[in-house]
Design a protein around this nucleic acid. Structure first.
Lengths: 185, 185
DNA sequence: TATTTTACAGACTGATTAGTCGATCTTTGA
DNA sequence: TCAAAGATCGACTAATCAGTCTGTAAAATA
């Protein structure tokens, strides 16, 4: 792993444990066993590091999601796959999840940041398709997307609190039906 | 207003603008026009201040909510009133909202903190009633509560982004139906 | 090969900040 | 009325931390 990625991975762990502000840059560098000079070589400021980490998480989530969808799926199947992929990803990668939570309620976050990403784009396109087909309530596609994603959050939060449900497929499926019923006409 | 409340109110404003960590205690005291000694007299640490603010917001939200419900309402009406009260409250008090968002994804927050509050208790009781009456999906009442509250969040977020909807009642009602459809059997 | 660019180290600093401390003033209750 | 308790002030400090700087080694490029 490149030092750049090593730094991001280490920062993810430390941020999850101590938060952005509870984690000095020096500690990140030390735990990654590199000099702190190199941290500022790759990331001019701590803020740059954090923003880079955000896009990194989104990218990896997107790649995973794409690997799960298959051609010829119906609309509901596609949305189900995407929704579930997000749940699985965050449940399996709690550091990523925790990071996103912190990031999205931090001063670094702006809606444009989120809107711009491929993962958001793809999901919104599916929402638009659903609207065309008349299966969804008449609600702006971005809001539809937000609703679905907030229920991903609820699911992952609950899974984190009740680890015995970790392998329980019927639980996740049940929660998907909640999300689906929320948006369907 | 007592200096204690004045400090909390000032902190709310500054936290909303600059975040917990971007706001030095000295700045809070200065803007509240009191000495910083008095801040630490009432709140032994910054963490104590922040936690006190959390319960303060919850208390005020709860009082407002109670003032809205009326006796003899049906279950759905009660839940509607409570749900809407939360939306209204947070929409009218963006500093409170912003504070809660930051708090709930900060290291200070634990689920027990939330579970313990009267507002949560009351809402959960309504969920249990709904389960008894068979109107809800078979899901633990706390999760039911979380689902409804996450959709409060989604609504308030969207309202903040689209201020022209601020007075649009049909928008809020539409979003309540989303929340209701999500949990109803 | 010679030269420029990039990767890396780690000591250092200037600014910031949570919390302390002792002094004074005000209120309360006996 | 007087002493104890609580409220308030603001100067001070010890620690922390983001980012700098200088120097070296390695890689790329010409």
């Amino acid at each position: 792993m490149s030092k750049k990625n090593l730094l991001m991975a280490t920062a993810r762990k430390l941020f999850a444990k101590n938060g952005f502000y509870g984690t000095p840059t020096a500690k990140i560098a030390k735990q990654a066993e590199v000099s702190n000079g190199i941290l500022f070589h790759y990331f001019p400021t701590k803020e740059h590091l954090i923003k880079a980490m955000y896009f990194d998480v989104k990218d990896r989530l997107f790649d995973y999601s794409l690997s799960q969808v298959y051609k010829g799926a119906t609309l509901k199947e596609s949305i189900y796959t995407l929704w579930l992929a997000a749940v699985e990803w965050y449940a399996e990668n709690p550091e990523d999840y925790n990071f996103m939570l912190q990031f999205e309620s931090s001063p670094y976050y702006r809606t444009e940041t989120e809107m711009a990403h491929r993962h958001t784009q793809l999901t919104i396109e599916l929402m638009e398709k659903g609207l065309d087909q008349g299966v969804f309530k008449t609600i702006q596609p971005f809001l539809l997307f937000q609703i679905m994603m907030k229920l991903v959050q609820t699911t992952v939060d609950y899974l984190q609190l009740n680890s015995e449900l970790q392998e329980d497929f019927s639980f996740r499926n049940g929660l998907f039906e909640v999300a689906w019923d929320a948006v369907k006409k």
